[in-house]
Structures are given as structure tokens and as C-alpha cells.
Design a protein around this nucleic acid. Sequence first.
DNA 1: CTGGACCCTCCCCCCGGGGGAGGGTCGATG
DNA 2: CATCGACCCTCCCCCGGGGGGAGGGTCCAG
Lengths: 264, 264
Amino acid sequence: MLSIGEFSRLTHLTVRTLRRYHDAGLLEPAVVDDVTGYRWYSVDQVPTAQVIHRLRELDVPLADVRAILRTPDPGARGRLVAGHLQRLEAELDRTRAAVASLRRLLRPDPAPVAVELRAEPARTVAAVSAVVDQDDVAAWFAGAVAELVAAVGGAATGPLGGTYDDALFEQGRGRALVYLPTPVPPRAGRVQPVTLPAAELAVTTHVGDHDTADVTYGGLGTWVVGNAMAVDGPVRERYLVGPEDSPDPAAWRTEIGWPVFRVG
Amino acid sequence: MLSIGEFSRLTHLTVRTLRRYHDAGLLEPAVVDDVTGYRWYSVDQVPTAQVIHRLRELDVPLADVRAILRTPDPGARGRLVAGHLQRLEAELDRTRAAVASLRRLLRPDPAPVAVELRAEPARTVAAVSAVVDQDDVAAWFAGAVAELVAAVGGAATGPLGGTYDDALFEQGRGRALVYLPTPVPPRAGRVQPVTLPAAELAVTTHVGDHDTADVTYGGLGTWVVGNAMAVDGPVRERYLVGPEDSPDPAAWRTEIGWPVFRVG
DNA sequence: CTGGACCCTCCCCCCGGGGGAGGGTCGATG
DNA sequence: CATCGACCCTCCCCCGGGGGGAGGGTCCAG
């Protein structure tokens, strides 16, 4: 039996942290003296403590650590951990994108975004639409695109596009729609004909990873406000060059259009 | 002038977050109506908001973001940001090490650490020693080693070693000492002759990156407790294969010795 | 038996926000 | 001119994963 201090020295976890893990049901001491409240740990608990330590270094929440520890089957446990490793990799990607974007932002005098005003006529397209959470939008998007491509096939007359409610960005949940223009929009599964209304669009093209699009969005916003206009209606995007066209995010090109109207 | 809601839409920062940045002195609205308290932002503030957004994505603390924004000189600002990017890279390394270590830990039935009991005689060596913070120990170590190598040169009769007070791990601050064994320890700058006392050591060898050493430490602890012994005195390490010998962390070998005595 | 090291619980603090209450302000409409 | 809904304000409490410290009990070696 080891006192909490001795156990702390063996595991490099602070005494405080060990007490917290006890309270959280993560690492119960082998014995708790019910008179003095002293915690006594067994040597066998050292490896468990080390697993916890590692998982915490990876910012795995305590609740998830608990779930992992309570999964006895090594295979299932491995899958749980693999999920977190995947999350970490996604985070690394995000970090890299943020670094790249930051470097561009900090360049003195960034080139202002080139914006064009364009009157867009109403168009009927093949579309998949749903109300989604911001976190799920990437997965939803992938599925919707696959279904669209299967339904429209080679009959597409233009690049893939999408529209997104403001609420998706502001409340984290809103309507998203992806479409392919085609002469006779089919009806298959979630794919429906949808008529995009006519609109006057302030249009610009974002080059690069989609994670850095908000810089372009901001430039567009600056232009819109600077030209005494305001925005009404969901944002429209068209994916001129995307992941399926080029593996290099730097080559991606996304056309972004905001429906605007003149004010003042 | 943009209301906080409009500004929020342009920057993809929530209204709440903008108010917080105002309170924190990070992003003052261009105008605050002193009757109604309404915040009004200028279009020019959009780029600033985006820089903040990027920095926050990199988990730069608000105080540091403020410091960066208040540094007008682009060069100095670039250096500040570079510091954070360096921190990020270090963190990535740490993450990778944790992932690797975790994989090993989760392998069923990890090989127990091979421990040897060894009586170490007292030895006088050339050493550099200081009380340091855990966060600074890496930088201090590098400088001390450089000074040692310069003073001892080719006269070293064994690998580089170090000793570390328990307090360094427990309180985050304690005495660290690095040494090179040599027949006639010189006295130069911070380099002094120091006599390491005789001790009985429980010795094992850690293979791999030093960040994963606590697993080996834990194994050593298990062995010590399991053999009815206890630890007294600073931990000793000897760097048999280190970064200067091999670029591959997997090849590094560190001998870890705990001064022990028999109990019970 | 006494001192110091060790252990206990409890409360408040940190960061970077989110949720929601309760109330004031704005501008388009009737 | 009133009214209504959208917008904005402040204030307080919540989260996770701990750290700092107060105030008090326990253990063991000298």
C-alpha cells in the first residue's frame, strides 16, 4: 500500500490531481480508511495512472478517460483511443491552417479582396438540403455530394454549389443546401429540384483551404459595408476547384456570393 | 459604423465573445454610446478581429494576443508570433510523444522494466548545478552541457550525467546538476568539481524520447516498492545515447538510477 | 510526548467562454 | 403616435481541470 504522496512520486501526478481523479471516479484508491479518510493506493494502480496521464496529455476529457478505462476489451478500447487520435489529427490540421492564415494576415497591407457585383437569375437545380449542426456539416456535406453526383452523373452543367443560412454560423445550427446545376433536375432519395431565387450577389473568390475562408468573408463584408450595401439571405458558394480536383488545398478555389441590396 | 451583431456576422466571432474582448481590452469598439452602452465597430476593425480569431485558434492567451496587437513594429510583432508558433511545435512534439507512449502503454502486458541493483562508489566529477524551474530546465540543461563540454573537452571518461531533486518534479522547482566524469575536474565559469556521494542505486535504462520517461520511472517505482525498498536522494540519470549521438529519439538511451535502501 | 511531515476537507481563483434572466433601445409598421 | 419584435445592455451562474491556501486531524521517529 502506498500513501497518496508516495503514489504521486511514482506517477508524477500531483496529490491534488490524484484526489480529483478519485472524486471523478477515475482512479479509486485501493483502500480508503473510513476513519481518517486517508487514501491508500496499490502498486498495481501505477500503470492505470500512467494511462490516465497520457490521455490527459492529449486533452482527452476526464469523462472520456473514464469511459476508456471502463472498457475492458482491448479492441473496443483501442477503437475509443483511435477516435481521440483522429480528433487530434484533425486539430493538427486546423492548427496548421490557422498558422498559415495568420502568416498571411500579418503580412503588412494584405491585398484587398476583389469583389464583383453580379445579377444572378433564378435557377432550378438538383439539390440536397437539411438543417444541420455546424459540427456535423462536413460529414453531411460529403454524403449529400455523393448522393447528388450519383443522381446527376455527367449531366451537370456547372460546378458544385451550396447555400448556407447565417444561423449556421451564428447559432451553430441552420439550413445548408448543396446543389448541382443540370438541365432536368432529378428526384432521387434526398435529391430534389430546388429553385434558387434571383439575387444580386457580391461575389469574390476564395483561394485555399476552406478553414481560412473567414478572411475572405471579412473582406467581402468590408466591401459590402463600404459600398453602402447590406446582406439579406443565405450565403452562396460555388466550388470551382475542390478536394476532388486537386489534392493541394492551396489550389482550391471557392466562389463566395452574398445576396446584397443597396441601403441609405 | 456596425452594430455588434453586424460585426459578429462579418468576423464569425459571437456577440458574447466580442463583448469579452472589449472587457479584456483586446478589441475596443470604435464608439461606445455612453447613454445606452451600445458598442459600435468600424469596418477597419475587421482585420484586427480576424487576427485575434486566428491567434485564439492557436490557443494564444488573451493577454498575449493583447501584447501582440499593441506591438506596432511588424518585426517585433513577428517575433512575438514566432514564439507562439515555436510553442505550438513543441506542443506537437509533446503530443506525438504522448501518442507513441500511449500506444505502448495500451499494449496488453507491457514488458516489466529490467532493474539492476548497483552499489555506486563516490566519484568526483566536473559539474554545473543550479536551482531551476521545471519549465526552464531544458534551456538551462543545454547551456550547462555546452559549458561542461567546453571545460572538459576530450578528457571525459564517461557519458554525460545528471541528478535531479525530487522537488523539481513535485514542486516544479528544485536543484538540477549535470556532470561529466573526468580524471581532474576543472574549475571554469559555472563548472565546479563536485563529489557525488556513494549510493546503492536501482538502475534501469529508458529507451526513447525523454518525454516518455515517466513510464520507465513508474516501472522503477513498482520494482522498488515490490522489493521492499524506498528511495532517498536525488534521481541520477546518465545519457548513454542522446540527441547529440543520434537524431532519432527512438534510439536514445538514458540510464536512470534511484538511490534506494531496504525497508521493513 | 512532541514536532514535523503528511493527510484530510473546504472554499476561492484561473481561463475563455456559454446559458439565461431581467431590462433598455431601435426602427418599421399600423 | 404607439407598438412590436429584433437587437442590445449588464449581471450572475455554469463548465473543465486543476492551483493556492486555510484550518485541522494523523502518523511516526526521536
